[in-house]
Structures are given as structure tokens and as C-alpha cells.
Simulated scan of single mutants.
Amino acid sequence: MSWTQQPDAAQLTGFALITGATAGLGASFARRFAAEGRDLVLVARDAERLESSAADLRSRYPVEVEVLSADLGTEDGRTAVADRIGSVDRSVDSVVNNAGFGLYRAFGKASLAEEERLLDVNVRAVLALTHAAVNAMCPRGRGEIINISSVAGFVPRGGATTYAAGKAWVTTFTEGVASLLDGTGVRATAVCPGFTHTEFHARAAADMSSTPSWMWLDADRVVADGLADARAGKVVSVPSRRYRAILVLIKLLPRSVVRKAVARR
């Protein structure tokens, strides 16, 4: 089986597991999968919010919705989710590694513990859950792994240094995994959106007032484009033409110019 002959959505009938599933892109992915008739496993830290999200989805779609409260910043939390991905009786055919957060402070201003927690959630969890997915899906010969990265990973951010570096890792890591999965019936895609209307920036206490309106994306559109790209066999998905054009420009500019442009962003 060649890379372009990966299974389509109709062949993926097991559960779709989504981390960070109660808001933003995670909630959009959950609705999208539910509309396809897929049973869900919703993962987040807030148990009360998880139950509320699950109840809403059950009322709108004829699907089963499991909830799994887990803190992906801890080893116990990552292990709990990895174990669910590895379930044989209630197989997971889609894993969306969406959970993550940003600090939006110049490096050195946040504590080392905060920076390390960011890496635990944004990087270590992606590593652990992708590892679990590969080992569960490859023997079955089907599955999709969607890792939410960011266009921030293509530039050396000054104001979000660890976040941008972590997203660069997510994209490169996913590319490497995808190349190894070629021919297995399992695919991996890094979805790299730009600024998106979610709770992300509010939670990071980031002042986004100077960001032009044209740079903002709709969460449902990002999910639709990302899933379409994944199912078309694309390994790196950059939703929206405007951000694809920005990335072309970034690649053409000298790296020193790019660093100066985003030194404090």
C-alpha cells in the first residue's frame, strides 16, 4: 500500500480520541467526528466540563461518548490515556493530540517549572500518545494520528520561545513518524494553524489586540481543512491560503530578518 492509498474516513470505525476536547479545536474535532457517526473518547483535565461536553454531544448525535479526565502534564495522566489508546476490545482508530498551552512571556520570565510543564503537555504527551497509537494501530492496519502543531513552529519566537520550539518538534516528529508508517494503513499528519479563535490566548493571558483581523481563523474551518488534508495523505497541513503564503515568504527571507521580525512576539 502506498502513502496515497491510506484508508479513508469510512474505513475508520473505532473510537476517535481527542485531547483538550472541551474547547477550541478539540471541541470542533469532537463535533466533526460525531457528525461522521464516530464514537468518542474525550480527554481533558476538568471532569465537570468533560461531562457537560459529553452530554451535549450525546444529545446532538447518535454516538457513544466516553470521558477520561487526565492531566497530560503528569506521567500518570499520560499513562492513563496511552492505556486507553491501546485498548483491544474498544479500539481507537483516530487520535488527535490537541491539548496544549502557551506562556506568552519572554524566556526567563516564567519559572523553569512552568516551562517544563509546557513541554510535558505540548511535547512529551504527543510523544507518549503517538507511541501508543502506533503500537495499537499498526497491527490492525488502520488508523490516523493527527498532531496539532502551529505555524509558530516555523519561526524562532522571542515571546513564546519554548512554545514555538515545541511546535517545531511536533511537526518534525510527525513527519518522521509518517515516513515510517508508509504502507502500514496508518497515517500521521501535523496540522499547523495560525491564530485561531479559541480560548487559547485568553488562557495564556496574551494581549492579542494588535493582531490584524485577517490573521484570525475559524476553528471549525481549521478542523475541516486539517482532516481533509490528513485524509488526502498530506503529512503537514497548513490551513488557509494566507498562512501558506506567509510560510513561503518566511522560507525566502534570510533567517536573521525573520528572527528580528518576531524577536518580541
Rank of each mutant, 00 (worst) to 15 (best):
A164E: 00
A47L: 10
S94W: 14
R157P: 02
A152D: 10
R90N: 14
A16D: 02
T198D: 09
V236W: 12
R60Q: 15
R242V: 08
G14M: 06
F200M: 02
L57E: 01
V223K: 01
G166Q: 03
L119T: 08
L119R: 04
R259L: 00
R221D: 14
A113C: 09
A168Y: 06
T172E: 13
A188G: 03
A44F: 07
T198W: 05
A80C: 06
V96M: 09
V65D: 08
E199K: 13
G102N: 09
A232T: 06
S179P: 08
M208D: 12
R124I: 12
M215D: 07
S111R: 09
A188D: 02
T4G: 14
K260G: 02
T171P: 12
A80E: 11
L40G: 02
A164G: 02
E114S: 12
A47P: 11
A70E: 06
T184P: 10
L12F: 07
D120R: 13
E64H: 13
N135L: 13
F15Q: 13
A80G: 05
A70V: 07
R244L: 07
E66L: 13
G77N: 04
G183C: 11
S91Q: 14
V248F: 12
A228L: 09
L118R: 01
L180D: 15
V123A: 12
T79M: 11
